[in-house]
């Protein structure tokens, strides 16, 4: 059976790939809203960009955690 042939390493890689989808959606939504905010209030662009940068980094942490779990499970 195909599922029985999946190794732990393959499962970890698959899970990491699935786990990276969420942060991708999150960053897309976050940046879209930030660009909208910058277009509406150009004078607040500096603050929006700062919070956007930190938001991207926070969302990216999720993907990083997924990678670390994959790395530790596959090691």
């Amino acid at each position: 059976m195909l599922l029985a042939e999946i190794t732990n390493k393959g499962l970890a890689a698959l899970t990491y790939g699935l786990g990276a989808i969420g942060p991708g959606i999150g960053i897309g939504y976050l940046v879209g809203q930030a660009v909208q905010a910058m277009a509406r209030q150009p004078e607040a662009a500096g603050m929006v960009r700062t919070t956007m940068f930190l938001g991207i980094a926070f969302v990216e942490a999720l993907a990083l955690i997924g990678f670390v779990v994959f790395f530790l499970a596959g090691a």
């Binding site: 942060p23 991708g24 960053i27 940046v31 277009a39 960009r49 940068f53 991207i56 980094a57």
Partner: peptide, 29 residues
């Protein structure tokens, strides 16, 4: 790298900023 890419893209256009944010994330990961 994230700061340099986003700062560079914002000076060109907000559309590029969106592209660089997503593809920059993929590239950096």
């Amino acid at each position: 790298l994230a700061a340099v890419l986003l700062g560079w893209a914002a000076r060109i256009s907000l559309g590029l900023l969106m592209g660089v944010s997503l593809f920059g994330f993929l590239i950096r990961i």
